[in-house]
Design a binder for these strands. Structure first.
Lengths: 207, 207
DNA sequence: TATATTTTATACGAAATTCGTCAAATGAAA
DNA sequence: TTTCATTTGACGAATTTCGTATAAAATATA
């Protein structure tokens, strides 16, 4: 029962301030738990981060499935998905994600990518089905969607792409933004993003 | 010109994460300034905090005077004041204030109290004038308003009052809330605060 | 009650971070 | 050129944080 307290307060502090700014002792103090009991439940800070990340990713996946299982029109589902992905990066704050990707433990980064890939796979399936129903632009090749998702993880690790952005988080945002906003047929969500000329390029296949 | 960059980014980071969570080197990095230039403009972290605190307090005071100088009805002015004081605690974030009061340098705490007292004095004058114009409840004694403000700083330092709250910040909120909401004749802003029985007490004079 | 388990409080050395200073190098302006 | 502001990198000192260990206190269980 103390474990839950620790997870909750740690989640709160991590989402508000990021990981590196929050101390184990701080978590213990705010959770009204002694340091001894903390190390009885978690071997170290990374362990805590992993547990939290796991909870969050599973929660995000559950929320996603919940949205897609509803009766809303597809466009509204996508809107909700986008909002979910944007506001919190799928359940976790910017600071949290940043800390994990930029300075977090490699295991956490790996796990995040793995889970992100799984989510992406699920999304891909849903989008293909949606296209078959005519809910998204028909002129986009399903192969491209597959290609895009299949290579998204690699793209994240590609130095060529990486050097275009100040932080990995920026790049990830750009990729997800591109997917959602570049895929939708109409109703630009504009303002926050600048679109390049999308006429000439169609299916970059040189990778 | 580098000094301004430092102050801006420091203000941003401090209001988002508080003081103790932010590193000098972090400020330098995000402000695109080397550590050397930082220490050319500020002798240390406390110095930076003081400069920032000074800016913020003066800004808050200026904003206050700006509100009061307008042509709005008094009640609306007070509403705006309250919103200003509430959302940001007079220009600075919760985290910032907390860090200053709970773990900040004594000079900063002293300065804050001093400035707060000055603000309070200005507010007192405005409220007395308002009462004379009939804009606030006439049944409240002007002496009480004066008493309340004159002793507000002392109350903050009074252990008797202090032990009633988890953090000093809470107490300060309570005091300011009491003043504004207890003073207004009608239109309860309710919800966020629980009111005690205000009928029996009228002018506690035992201090 | 007695006993076992959990939690707390505290101290501690080791590791890591942060601080503040400095010297050498860069670059722009007078 | 000289001057001045800035950057870079390194450095030891100070501080913080980590993770462990211990005994006392609290809580549960028999």
């Amino acid at each position: 029962m103390k474990k839950r307290q620790i997870l909750e307060t740690a989640g709160d502090l991590f989402t508000r301030f990021g990981i590196r700014r929050v101390t184990i002792e701080e978590v213990c103090a705010k959770a009204n738990v002694s340091k001894g009991t903390f190390y009885k439940h978690f071997s170290n800070k990374n362990d805590l981060v992993m547990a939290l990340l796991n909870m969050i990713m599973e929660g995000a996946m559950a929320e996603y499935r919940n949205i897609m299982a509803g009766t809303l029109p597809f466009k509204d589902k996508v809107k909700r998905m986008i909002r979910m992905k944007m506001e919190r990066t799928g359940g976790m704050s910017r600071e949290f994600l940043m800390d994990i990707i930029e300075s977090g433990p490699p295991e956490a980064v790996a796990y995040y990518k793995e889970q992100a890939a799984a989510t992406i796979a699920a999304i891909t399936g849903d989008f293909i089905a949606a296209q078959q129903r005519g809910d998204i632009r028909r002129t986009i090749k399903p192969e491209f969607i597959l290609y895009f998702f299949n290579h998204m993880i690699e793209m994240v690790q590609d130095p060529k792409l990486d050097e275009l952005y100040a932080t990995p988080g920026e790049m990830i945002n750009e990729l997800t933004n591109f997917f959602f906003y570049g895929v939708m047929p109409e109703e630009g969500y504009s303002s926050e993003f600048q679109h390049g000329d999308a006429e000439k390029e169609e299916h970059a296949d040189h990778a």
